[in-house]
């Protein structure tokens, strides 16, 4: 490989690298700053995770019951508990979303 070819190759690498890192500053782009999640957003994510975990738990419970891993009594007790937990989480989500000035634009079911 000749010295000129090496120099050309290195120049291409450096040019591409410089363009890559400079491009976001010269290209037109919407919005320059990322919004940060508020305390309420984080709380909502926690609650949604708990809600989905309760739903998944109910589905899993159903499957475990159908496949004979749980007695009827255990199944009923655990189902009551998971439903109560899901209801509690949904109440908290409702309360969070109905706060004045909070998340008026957010979808009720996310």
């Amino acid at each position: 490989m000749s010295d000129a070819a090496i120099a050309g190759g290195v120049a291409v690498l450096v040019t591409v690298a410089v363009i890559a890192i400079a491009w976001p500053f010269v290209a037109p782009q919407r919005g320059q700053r990322d919004a940060v999640l508020s305390r309420e957003d984080r709380r909502r994510i926690d609650l949604l995770e708990r809600r989905d975990a309760a739903y998944a738990g109910l589905r899993e419970l159903e499957q475990d019951h159908r496949t004979g891993k749980l007695s009827n009594d255990d199944y009923e007790a655990e189902r009551r508990r998971l439903r109560a937990e899901a209801a509690e989480v949904l109440r908290e989500l409702d309360a969070l979303d109905s706060k004045p000035g909070e998340r008026a634009d957010a979808p009720r079911e996310v």
Partner: peptide
């Protein structure tokens, strides 16, 4: 720290370009 999306995009491009130079 600044929540600057352009700077983040630049950092992301730098990591991608680093893959290109390593591949070279």
């Amino acid at each position: 720290r600044r929540r600057d999306r352009r700077l983040m995009q630049s950092a992301s491009n730098a990591l991608t370009a680093a893959f290109g130079t390593t591949l070279a």
